[in-house]
Simulated scan of single mutants.
Amino acid sequence: MTIISEAKSLFDEWIAAVSEAIELAVGRYMRRPTILLSGNGAGVLTAKLNSAPNGPALPEVSFRLADGRPSPSLPADWQAAFRGSRIEAVLAPAQVLLRPLDFPKQAQEFLDGMIRSQIDRLTPWPADEAVFGWSEPSAHGQERIELILAATSKQEVEALLQLATNLGAQSLAAFAAASDASHASANIKVFDRPLGSATGRRFDTPRILRMALLATGAAAAVALLVATYVGDSLDSEQQQLMGRISQRRTALRLGSDGSSALGLLAKRKQTSPSSIVVLEALSRALPDRTYVTELRIDGDKVQVVGMTQDAPSLIRLLEKSPQFARATFFAPTTRAPNEPGEQFHIEARITPSFGSTI
């Protein structure tokens, strides 16, 4: 059960991570209206439609908050503009604590952790009860950087959060004006939260991901079944093919009369004389002072050319050998003046007794 619980937890985390990534991607590239809210410190908020993908521009509207709802009620066109929009609220100076800070230049990459760990000391609120942000760091001397910390209590943005939720906004961001609130570059973001799906209420990303995974699993199961069936069919065909190959190989090993080709080769090996055996038989039959210069074996016939002292006696010696028969001269015997013996040319038949000596 523990393994199943861990797997379910990992699956839910994966679904949440993918859903968040999709929401961020869609929210980045999908154009939605942006509404600017600004307060005058007396509880009056003024809404201005900063950008809208379609439709005419709307005049500014002012209202107060009463239980998280605008009072008086907004016109119908403004209510439609708020639905699915991004609200960017600029907090009144009295609601925000601004504090200049400086750090070593090397700490620029670790500002988030350093500031977050010091919120209790830098502001009147604990870290879990405050929302904060800071301006872009700027160089202050050679080895220092300076920035402006902006912080406020979560209670200050709670009313704005309730308003944005009631009006059906897609996200809410809160800014603090570091100097002149009319300059957007001077605003410091202290709060930013999505309130709804960037893909719309009808597009349930986690549900669609689960359905896609289930469909993928079902497709994989069907593919596995098909692969198993096809694999069994292929195995059967392979076995049949291997049987045919084996039969074909057997037929190739057999001759037309049914005799084995390997048997014919073995028979030929047993009945054909070996050159080494012929040479060994000649070395035993010829005398020591006889030299062989040429040896030719053609079927069952051997021809020997060489030098000897008594060529006619070689015929008698070969005839006595059980491996040779019908020895005769196939060329005249000659004697050169500068040669120590006679040059002979003898031809003999190789007897079948060589087969028993192999």
Rank of each mutant, 00 (worst) to 15 (best):
L101A: 01
D102L: 02
D102R: 07
F103M: 08
F103R: 05
Q106M: 05
Q106L: 09
Q106G: 05
Q106E: 12
Q106D: 11
E109C: 01
F110N: 11
F110H: 11
L111M: 06
G113K: 07
G113I: 10
M114D: 03
I115P: 00
I115S: 00
R116A: 15
S117R: 13
Q118E: 13
I119W: 04
I119E: 00
D120P: 09
D120G: 15
R121H: 13
L122N: 03
T123P: 11
T123L: 05
P124A: 01
P126V: 03
P126Y: 02
D128M: 07
D128W: 07
D128K: 07
D128N: 12
E129Y: 08
E129D: 14
E129T: 11
A130L: 08
V131G: 01
F132A: 00
G133E: 01
G133I: 05
W134P: 07
S135C: 08
E136D: 13
E136N: 08
P137T: 03
P137C: 04
A139W: 04
A139H: 06
H140C: 07
H140G: 00
G141P: 14
E143C: 00
E143H: 12
R144G: 07
R144K: 13
R144W: 12
R144Y: 07
E146N: 09
I148M: 13
L149H: 02
L149T: 02
A150W: 05
A150Y: 04
A150K: 03
A151S: 11
T152R: 01
T152Q: 02
T152K: 00
K154S: 11
K154Q: 14
K154R: 14
Q155E: 14
Q155D: 15
E156I: 15
V157M: 05
E158N: 11
E158L: 14
E158D: 14
E158H: 13
A159Y: 08
L160Y: 13
L160D: 06
L161D: 12
Q162Y: 07
A164F: 11
A164H: 10
N166H: 15
N166V: 06
L167S: 04
L167M: 13
L167A: 07
A169T: 09
A169D: 05
A169K: 05
Q170I: 07
Q170A: 09
Q170E: 12
S171L: 06
S171A: 15
A173P: 04
A174M: 06
A174G: 05
F175W: 15
F175R: 01
F175M: 04
F175D: 01
A176Y: 04
S179E: 11
S179H: 12
S179Y: 12
S179Q: 11
S179K: 11
D180H: 12
D180G: 08
A181G: 09
S182C: 06
S182V: 03
S182M: 10
A184R: 14
A184N: 05
S185A: 13
S185K: 09
S185G: 06
A186D: 15
A186R: 10
A186I: 00
N187G: 08
N187E: 08
I188C: 01
I188D: 00
I188W: 00
K189D: 01
V190R: 00
